[in-house]
Design a protein around this nucleic acid. Structure first.
Lengths: 230, 230
DNA sequence: GCTGGAAACTTCGTACACGATTCTGCTAGC
DNA sequence: GCTAGCAGAATCGTGTACGAAGTTTCCAGC
């Protein structure tokens, strides 16, 4: 094998399978539009219009919408079309937090027990980044803060070492992602203070404290969201 | 509003949205073929050939395969194609059971605490049906027993009253569905005896016993699957 | 004001063109 | 003679365009 290779081959080696299709691009665009509510909940999604606006055919749009349906961000009715999922009702929000309370305290406990240094570094980086955004304006960076929140919790799940749980938590957080709750300045600062508490407990390898900190964070988060909804 | 309505409207009321599309049919067929391993793990799924065999065009097949990818039953590589997901490795199986241990004991506890009669009736019906199959031949009805197993656990989740958790458990069980483990006669009888223990505890509203019975059932189930894999 | 039905619109399915990938077979070099 | 490398062809997935099927809307008629 020669050491010299074409640029194409180099790229192939560097990125094992990130060959993006058109549908992937459409998916990303629509996903962001839905989470940011630039496409409002309940809005009907016309296939042809989306295709025209994005300068593609309807097949990639259909594929993207199917994936978004699996994510729970859009709903489909056969022969009628897709609509942006309505905002979650208070009952569903409770149920989502209920599930999170079953798995995330254990994630925190295991992350605290784990020896991996890199996990703590990643969490620290996320918190530092969020603090920088908070120092400016939580309202302006609501979207970025929401993404950072998701990363924080997913990162803990990764540190806990169970990929299946990580994937399912990712799904749950995706469904909740429109409730960034960082529209309120108070809520944003409170939430990230609680994140810091969790991080400190994990850093100190205090699994008991990590568990309890996560449990409290989730309970308080539920109350914050409920205050917003009602 | 008149009491008289057309047959069409009656049907619409009876079935809220079961307007089946071609893609749904294809999905069902492929899903069953994959779970039963009539399509073996790792097999490449040719789009055109499937379309020809099922007498449809490739669009419905593509849609069905996309949904199956979300279920984890097939994997896709862009510009290459779909392949039936390989059999789960021992580590992933452990992780799946790990997640089940986080949520299912609580499901059993809540189902036992719930007052709903119908939940217990449904569970009883499932167990009676399974016993009938077991009395004949567990090997011959391996597929039906696997489906009944899934229904049993999902039914408990429903009784526990959290739809979000029920949906996620359904996903987890789908991924495990190729490990029906009812190929072994012993394992089948053991598993359904444990199911009966759980049912009895729920029927007696003994939430502590239900929790513990579920926990033991899952631990033993993991060992049975591991014995099969190794 | 209500019912019935037709037109308009949208989605669903088919057929085909394009492009990427993979396989085959040939050639060059050892 | 054998292997590595490369070019061409066949294969298969992706995207486009169009026709078929179903739903919604609107208007005429009662």
């Amino acid at each position: 094998m020669t050491e010299q290779m074409t640029p194409r081959e180099e790229l192939t080696l560097l990125r094992p399978a990130p060959r993006r299709m058109l549908a992937d691009e459409v998916y990303e665009i629509l996903r962001e539009s839905l989470i940011s509510q630039r496409i409002p909940p309940g809005a009907r999604l016309n296939l042809d219009r989306l295709a025209r606006e994005l300068h593609v055919s309807n097949t990639p749009v259909r594929q993207a919408l199917s994936r978004l349906e699996a994510d729970g961000l859009v709903q489909k009715e056969p022969y009628v079309g897709f609509t942006a999922s309505p905002l979650l009702d208070s009952r569903t929000i409770e149920q989502l937090y209920d599930l999170r309370l079953l798995i995330e305290p254990t994630n925190a406990e295991r992350a605290a027990s784990a020896v991996a240094r890199e996990g703590v570094d990643e969490l620290t980086a996320i918190c530092v980044g969020a603090d920088a955004l908070l120092a400016e304006s939580s309202a302006e960076h609501a979207e970025a803060l929401g993404a950072a929140d998701m990363e924080f919790h997913v990162s803990i799940a990764r540190s806990a070492g169970n990929d299946v749980i990580t994937a399912h938590l990712h799904e749950v957080l995706t469904q909740m992602s429109r409730y960034t709750l960082y529209t309120s300045d108070d809520a944003a600062h409170l939430a990230w203070a609680e994140h810091r508490t969790i991080l400190d407990a994990i850093d100190a390898s205090d699994s008991g404290a990590a568990t309890e900190a996560m449990r409290q964070h989730l309970r308080r988060g539920l109350h914050r969201v409920q205050d917003l909804v009602n």
